[in-house]
């Protein structure tokens, strides 16, 4: 193996395990030592580079405002956060959750109580947005070990999504625009067979691709969402369509009219290729929005 190809192999390998280079990891470690933490630098870092999985939970906690920027306040703040377990205790007191309640449902009930939306009875059927919550919570639960941290990450991740609610209706339009730039013929095709309005936008944008992408890809997309860009979601959607262009066109003949068909398409796709799609989407997003797309 030549030195070059060895290096290439190394960087490909590193990319696979979650960091492109040791240098990046080092510079992130430096950033995390800052006191107070420079949140804008961390934001820029997670927009520009993939987060090493060992630091993901920590960086998210900072970006989501769960951990304070000053190391000095960490202990006290985390003690405050822990007090939220009172909510869990209260839910037990009114027989809303028990020892056998699944953890994700516990998080949902805690969140409902906190936002004043606890239903009258736990046996009431769940609303669609509750189901989205559960799916997101499940994905985050896989990522964050500590249960208090986990609830806080879920709670804070879901809240920015609600903050994006104003931006959400504009995402389909942005999707059109970028698809037009990348492949105007495909867009034209979708338009002429009036499939465009039937694409699973909610499934993509409202749910942040939960249940659609494998966990590893999901985390890389959410890194960007957490650091302030929901526009990344548009580029993932564009890349999915580009990747399945042929299949989508064939599907069209049988009527591309449901989210289900695209979902099935994605479900039957090997995880590797979805990972590759996400990598392409991130590159495309960098190309169109630069790396400082906080407000986008």
């Amino acid at each position: 193996m030549t030195e070059d190809s060895q290096r290439n192999f190394r960087s490909e390998y590193d990319e696979k395990v979650g960091f492109r280079g040791v240098e990046e990891k080092k510079s992130l470690e430096m950033l995390l030592k800052d006191d107070p933490l420079a949140i804008e630098k961390l934001r820029t870092f997670s927009q520009r580079f993939p987060l090493p999985s060992m630091y993901r939970a920590l960086v998210w906690k900072v970006l989501l405002g769960i951990l304070p920027l000053h190391h000095e306040s960490h202990a006290q703040m985390m003690a405050y956060r822990r007090e939220h377990l009172d909510i869990l205790h209260a839910l037990g007191g009114i027989h809303f959750v028990g020892p056998s309640t699944p953890q994700v449902e516990v998080s949902l009930r805690m969140y409902q109580l906190e936002s004043g939306k606890l239903p009258q009875s736990p046996s009431f059927p769940l609303e669609p947005k509750d189901k989205v919550f559960l799916a997101i919570a499940k994905a985050i639960e896989e990522m964050v070990e500590d249960s208090v941290d986990c609830y806080w990450v879920i709670r804070s991740f879901v809240s920015p999504l609600r903050k994006y609610r104003d931006a959400l209706p504009q995402l389909p339009k942005a999707f059109d625009d970028y698809l037009n730039l990348e492949d105007s013929r495909l867009l034209h095709h979708l338009k002429t067979c009036s499939s465009l309005s039937k694409l699973p936008y909610d499934f993509w944008f409202k749910n942040c691709f939960v249940g659609c992408l494998p966990e590893s890809s999901l985390q890389r997309v959410w890194d960007k969402v957490v650091s302030g860009s929901c526009k990344i979601l548009v580029f993932v959607a564009v890349e999915i369509l580009l990747a399945f262009k042929i299949k989508v066109m064939v599907l069209r003949r049988s009527g591309l009219n449901s989210a289900g068909k695209i979902t099935r398409l994605l479900e039957n796709t090997p995880q590797d290729s979805l990972d590759a799609i996400v990598s392409k989407a991130i590159n495309l997003w960098h190309k169109h929005c630069g790396t400082l797309a906080h407000s986008a």
Binding site: E83, D86, I87, A90, L113, E114
Partner: peptide
Amino acid sequence: RYEAQKRITQVF
């Protein structure tokens, strides 16, 4: 955490 406590009171 005060807000959380207040919500608990309401539910109780």
